[in-house]
Design a protein around this nucleic acid. Structure first.
Lengths: 325, 325
DNA sequence: TTGAAAGCGATACCAT
DNA sequence: ATGGTATCGCTTTCAA
């Protein structure tokens, strides 16, 4: 350690650096002066290694950053974590099956203080690794009654059901859904499931469910609704996987002279900022994405500092009764 | 090391784990079997510490994730890095001045293999720390003729100038600009500067430059253009800080019955996906955000593996002559 | 092909 | 208030 060139033992220097007491003010000043002079930076790798501690890293896995909702979640996480001296180690995994498992192995080898994982379904090996690693884990986005450890999210199926019921209550009979195709059971699938259930219970018909092999963006909504209408022109209202897709659909309708909601009702999900510029309010489901991230980070930090934590947080959702249905 | 319960020394096990040769196939199989059985995960912290190596972390600082362009940059970075066994350690710094310096200190203490920093202006202490740390650094977004180490970005001033010239060539005389306020000299300021220069050279008048204290999003564009028009109604065309703001402005015009480009011309910057749903093409500047991230990661990886690297990459830009001016 | 020993930079523990 | 010593898990070096 360079700072003991200041005439003290490395132990004393270490104590000063960590400000844990047990040194005189003079010593302190002498050490800090040398630190400053030499531009000394502590080696946290060595510290973690030494103390058999965990690092201050938090591994955060999200499907991808292209999806705007997850950037908000991530921002919520990182803001909170960095305020408490932790670092986010990113993992964009869900693009390829099996990536999560690989990523978790890597990130665990860095002795992270905790993990935040998107989704509640993981490979069996992942479960094993997590158990063996014995660290705080928060699963986010979807809700699970039996989380691996902790969980922050919302009941996607209920949100779809709520939207279905609402649309039924508006008198619609012929429903459509446009989303994108996902490999596994996931949140969007749960929404569709709840939606379909409510439609059925309301004696409506979910005539057309379009699952496109594309990303859930504006353009996908644009051509998705076009495709849906051409094959099921009797559709009265369409529920979209997210607001981006709904916005694309609205633009399509505008371009084609289809009046919304007169000719076609449109509902989104997620309440993304883009919808705020419409001259009318988009019917959608509000979810506080940032709050999911913050709550997840908070839970993790509490657990790391040894507090007891309520394992499951339901951040809920709110149906926005807009003017597009 | 647990795996030497397989009857070999830890050295042999270590060699097998790193697959560096110097062991028999039988030994190999025996060790790997134990690794599997015990669910052994290597401790990379110890490895880095031991070898006096760098870690595989790459520190990536970006202003914030709310700004869509940086999420694309980040995605480009992380895709490339993770494909080569590196991990992104996130730093959202620019919200507060001085945060970058603090963050760099922290991240350097983890012995990262390299850094990617947004922007080319850094505090003097940051410069010192980077020099002392002696690691590859890529500055992104803005271009610098004299980067600290390496640099990937584009000439923002030139892009503003190009837009200015183009609008002048379309016969406009009264120009406006709407952006957001930033504390330091930055990319958007450079664009405005180039824009103003071109307008002046074209004998136009940049009557109104609106710098709002807000985030550069849809809604900011919406009320920004409203504010600009009320104080400078003679404005014929407005250049916005980004496409999101331009989109907000277009929605405003639509709501108020202002025809675009008949009554007012609108130009954006950055070519964000949202504009793709307009029934006409937005006049804007195309920048390949993803490519900036990828190129930065590539440069870093090349340098890390000891190759010589061209220090500066200009990813350029392309003026999109749309239908909104 | 294998192993024994030193050491990386910090901290915990025990002494002074 | 201060310092000596062992130690963390792994890699490097040297020897067998």
């Amino acid at each position: 350690m360079v700072a003991e060139a200041a005439g003290v033992s490395k132990m004393t220097a270490s104590r000063v650096l960590r400000n844990e007491g047990g040194f005189s003010p003079q010593t302190r000043d002498r050490v800090l002066a040398e630190v400053e002079r030499l531009g000394y930076l502590p080696n946290r790798i060595a510290a973690v290694f030494s103390g058999d501690q965990k690092s201050t890293f938090i591994g955060v896995s999200i499907p991808d950053l292209g999806n705007e909702v997850f950037t908000h979640v991530l921002e919520g996480i990182d803001r909170k974590l960095s305020a408490f001296g932790h670092q986010t180690v990113l993992g964009m995994t869900q693009r390829v099956a099996g990536e999560e498992e690989k990523w978790i192995g890597t990130v665990l080898s860095w002795q992270p203080a905790g993990l935040i994982l998107t989704g509640v379904s993981h490979a069996p090996r992942v479960q094993q690794m997590l158990e063996a690693a014995d660290l705080p884990v928060v699963e986010i986005w979807e809700l699970s009654a039996t989380p691996f450890d902790m969980c922050v999210g919302l009941d996607h199926e209920a949100s779809g059901r709520a939207m279905g019921r609402y649309l039924v209550s508006k008198g619609y009979k012929h429903f459509g859904y446009v989303g994108t195709h996902h490999d596994a059971a996931n949140a969007a699938a749960a929404r569709l499931s709840g939606f379909g259930e409510a439609v059925k219970a309301g004696e409506g018909r979910l005539k057309k469910q379009l699952l496109l092999n594309d990303v859930p963006g504006f353009y996908t909504g644009y051509y998705g609704v076009e495709q849906l209408l051409s094959s099921a022109p009797e559709t009265e209202v369409v529920f979209f996987q997210n607001d981006n897709m709904a916005m694309g659909a609205i633009q399509f309708c505008q371009a084609k002279g289809i009046s919304v909601p007169g000719d076609l009702g449109i509902a989104g999900w997620g309440e993304l900022p883009i919808a705020s510029v419409l001259p009318y309010r988009l019917t959608t489901v509000r979810v506080n994405h940032l709050r999911i991230g913050q709550a997840a980070a908070e839970k993790l930090l509490l657990r790391i500092s040894g507090d007891s934590v309520d394992p499951v947080t339901d951040v809920g959702f709110q149906l926005i009764e807009g003017e597009t249905v």
